[in-house]
Amino acid sequence: MLELGQGQAKSAPAGDLIKDGTEATFMADVIEGSREVPVIVDFWATWCGPCKTLGPMLEAAVTAAKGKVRMVKIDVDREQRLAGALAQQGLPLQSIPTVVAFVGGRPVDMFQGAIPQGQIKEFIDRLVAMGGDDGGLAEALEAAEAMLAEGAVVDAAQTFAAILEEEPENAAAMAGLARAHLAMGEIDKAEGILNTAPQAIVAAPELEAVRAQIALARQAANAGPLADLQAAVEANPADHQARFDYAQALHAAGKVQEAVDELLELFRRDREWNEGAAKAQLFTIFEALKPQDPIVLTGRRRLSSMIFA
């Protein structure tokens, strides 16, 4: 999922705008790279006719963006293991060309098939907008974030709301306003704010992070007794439901690392249990945290090692 108040996105060096990607370079070029500059990933194959039409059009549009986005090309035939792992994590790669946009380490937008040049430009323009704001309200955003961190929740909410009055498509401000209401215990109101998001920012990483926080807050309200669930897991380590419930209770108690550990253990034991519930819950926790949080970085590495094993 970008931190609030980042300001303008950095520009990529001219010679580094478009490159071929592999399983070995995907994490650095796409996941980590998109934390600096939005990245477009073109999944293609040499035998694919529409790919031959779309590829040059994408490259021209990326070049025209002058460093505000980068592009990574993945040949799905050469990188079958990578494509399979990404499909397992939810990317719809059954047909190509598939183009996926990443911001802040997460997929935020996509399309399939060859589309006109005008639609490609609109796609890139949306991506650039997600990558950062124009810097005009950066100070106000920073101040609102500081208020929220210090517990001045009402003042923070008012500041975020004022920013939205001036810039309704400011994803950072909308996410901040929702988080302020979450801090007040107003889960429904926080969710209602996100439901009013303009189409241009509805998939912004900031908003996705708050959606994950809302989901976890609702789970916390229904979490079972921690001690009882721990005893159930210790009595029967093969009780997957008890382990899953125990992980939710741990997270509700603020023990995030312990919750992640239990979910990884559940995934190791049975990755398909309850339609992949352990992996889905891990992704929800990761999305709710900052991308550079050590829990996220370590947890994603451990999960990836299990998927690729």
Rank of each mutant, 00 (worst) to 15 (best):
M1V: 13
L2K: 15
L4R: 14
Q8L: 15
K10S: 12
K10A: 15
S11K: 14
A14H: 08
A14W: 00
G15T: 04
D20A: 11
E23G: 14
T25G: 07
T25I: 08
M27E: 14
A28I: 12
I31V: 14
G33I: 06
P38D: 06
V41C: 02
D42T: 07
W44F: 10
G49N: 05
C51G: 05
G55V: 00
P56H: 01
A60I: 08
A65V: 10
K66D: 12
K68H: 09
V72I: 07
V72A: 00
K73T: 03
D77P: 00
E79F: 12
E79A: 11
G84A: 15
A85E: 14
Q88S: 14
S95L: 10
S95W: 07
I96W: 05
T98Y: 00
T98I: 07
V99K: 00
V100F: 08
A101F: 02
G105F: 05
I120N: 05
M130R: 09
G131W: 11
G131P: 12
D133Y: 02
D134V: 09
G135I: 01
E139W: 03
L141S: 08
A143P: 07
A143I: 10
A144V: 03
E145M: 14
A146S: 15
L148C: 10
E150C: 05
E150L: 08
G151C: 08
V153G: 04
V154N: 01
F160Y: 13
I163D: 00
I163A: 08
L164A: 01
E166D: 04
E166R: 12
E167I: 00
E167S: 08
E169K: 11
A173Y: 00
A175W: 03
L177D: 00
A183S: 14
E191T: 01
G192C: 02
I193M: 07
T196C: 02
T196Q: 12
A197S: 04
Q199L: 15
E206G: 08
E206Y: 03
A209V: 02
A217Y: 10
A217N: 02
A221H: 10
N222K: 15
P225Y: 07
A227W: 07
A227S: 06
D228L: 03
D228C: 03
H240G: 05
H251R: 11
H251E: 09
V260R: 03
D261S: 04
L263Q: 03
L264P: 06
L264S: 06
R268N: 11
D270T: 07
R271L: 07
W273S: 07
E275R: 13
G276T: 03
K279R: 15
Q281F: 04
I285H: 00
K290P: 11
P294G: 11
P294I: 10
T298H: 14
R300S: 08
R301K: 15
R302I: 10
R302N: 13
S304Q: 14
S305C: 08
M306A: 13
M306R: 13
I307L: 15
F308Y: 15
A309N: 14
